[in-house]
Design a protein around this nucleic acid. Structure first.
Length: 414
RNA sequence: CGGAGUGUCGUAUAAUGGCAGUAUACGUGCUUUGGGAGCACGCGGCUUGGGUUCGAUUCCCAGCACUCCGACCA
């Protein structure tokens, strides 16, 4: 992809009033555009990142036997009334007939659908998920992609014959989420928390410890114990209640995922039953599990940036390699075009961004740092004379001057 | 939803009861090319409604929008 052909471009001016680093850098770099408070467009660059996050999520969901589907955003009032959750969220009025609530979660819809297909113990267990836009009437959208009024959510729902089976799957999902976060290079704490509007039971959240977070997490500095401050009786400095060795620390956390045991709350409301081996009717036992792709994207920027810009982990970077041409000498340009072909062959057709714009060296280098593509390659008068190219990893300070063989040796090492 | 603040070219900002200026971006031309280059010319702007006034972008009231702090929430 030639950078001169990109739809978006970077800007020098900081967006007014945006204090969240993720919002500042994503807007400056042309990854997203803010339409209203908490409502963002994902521009081509940003969508590339989001799609890569989604691809990882899909792989791990499919790996635990979940099937992808897509439910509507418009959910008629009767569904919400059936579960007693017709509250103040975003309402869509048709002007005639019933109102709709724009979906902020899908327990109701999925329960109604599942009731069509689950009738027997032979139909269990089942798991389905979707990646879909959610709407929430946030009184105060803030912190860029971390809290939107419209945001992307992967929600997974599982159906089981009994608690035991649910518990086993619950652990499976936790493992899958750990794998997703691991692949995204995010260190998250599995944190015990309250159930909010979903369940009265305790639930678990994945919290990325980061000062930009809106939650407060108490955790042990030597074992895995962690609790959300909302429900915790511990305080900073206490001895860990679990391992009895470490001490309890308190930090801000970004909740990137959560897992809920719903039990039979929704299956009872929607007559989601099955007949067991004895022909006896039982309520299906359900679980629901969410992870927020757009929030993950914001979290990644909060975790991986410096004063110059974003430092994308390889797995989600919009492009794997960034080729930067410095100068307008025809010989140098020709050489850069050759290098571009080689890089495309190695990284893939759509994984190389080629900055062949007519712009000053300073502007190009600063843009490269802002965009945060992991491997930066420079071709200039200097490198052509050396018969080498300059290779620099975004996360490292010092560049290396290498020939083709050394180049791929370095790249394949990572 | 409570508290505070702000609305001026695409973006970021300045001043002003009567003439709205700058930076950046954009267009044209020339020069320049290893850390946001220079010159010249050009395009482009006062949140909405009401009030005060000879006259309002400016003052007053209301709305709307946005930002920050708090409550709430993936």
């Amino acid at each position: 992809m030639k950078q001169s052909e990109l739809f978006s471009k970077t800007t020098k001016n900081l967006p007014e009033g945006e204090t969240a680093k993720n919002a500042q850098l994503l807007i400056k770099g042309g990854f997203v555009n803010k339409s209203s408070a908490g409502v963002y467009s994902l521009l081509p660059l940003g969508l590339r990142v989001l799609n890569k996050i989604n691809a990882i999520i899909r792989e791990e969901m499919n790996a635990i036997g979940a099937e992808e589907l897509l439910m509507p955003s418009l959910i008629q009032k009767k569904y919400w009334e059936q579960s007693g959750r017709w509250n103040t969220d975003v309402i869509y009025k048709t002007g005639q007939g019933s109102d709709y609530g724009l979906g902020w979660t899908h327990e109701e819809v999925i329960s109604a659908i599942a009731a069509h297909f689950i009738n027997s113990y032979k139909d269990l267990p089942k798991a389905v998920y979707q990646i879909q836009t959610k709407f929430r009437a946030e009184p105060r959208a803030q912190a860029g992609l971390l809290r939107g009024r419209e945001f992307l959510m992967k929600d997974l729902y599982s159906f089981h014959a009994d608690e035991k089976d649910l518990n086993a799957y619950y652990q499976k999902v936790i493992k899958a989420y750990k794998k997703i976060l691991d692949r995204l290079c995010l260190k998250a704490r599995l944190t015990e928390a309250g159930g909010g509007a979903f369940t009265k039971e305790f639930t678990h959240e994945f919290q990325v410890l980061n000062p930009a977070g809106e939650d407060t997490v108490l955790y042990c500095d030597s074992c895995d114990w962690a609790q959300n401050k909302e429900i915790s009786k511990m305080e900073h400095g206490n001895k860990c209640p679990d391992c009895k060795k470490g001490s309890v620390k308190m930090e801000r956390g970004i909740e990137v995922a959560n897992v809920f045991k719903l039990g039979t709350k929704y299956s009872e409301a929607f007559n989601l039953n099955y007949l067991d081996k004895n022909g006896k009717k039982n309520s299906v036992v359900m679980g629901s599990y969410g992870i927020g792709p757009t929030r993950l994207m914001g979290t990644l920027v909060e975790e991986y940036h410096d004063e110059k810009g974003i430092i994308w982990p390889d797995a989600v970077a919009p492009y794997k390699a960034h080729l930067v041409l410095l100068g307008e000498d025809k010989k140098v340009k020709k050489e850069a075009d050759e290098v571009y072909k080689i890089l495309v062959r190695h990284f893939g057709e759509s994984e190389v961004l080629y900055d062949e714009r007519k712009a000053s060296a300073g502007e190009k280098l600063n843009d490269a740092d802002l965009l945060g593509i992991p491997w930066r390659t420079i071709v200039s008068d200097k490198t052509v004379k050396m018969k080498k190219v300059e290779l620099k990893r975004r996360s490292e300070k010092e560049p290396k001057f290498v020939n083709e063989k050394q180049y791929f040796k370095l790249i394949n090492k990572k």
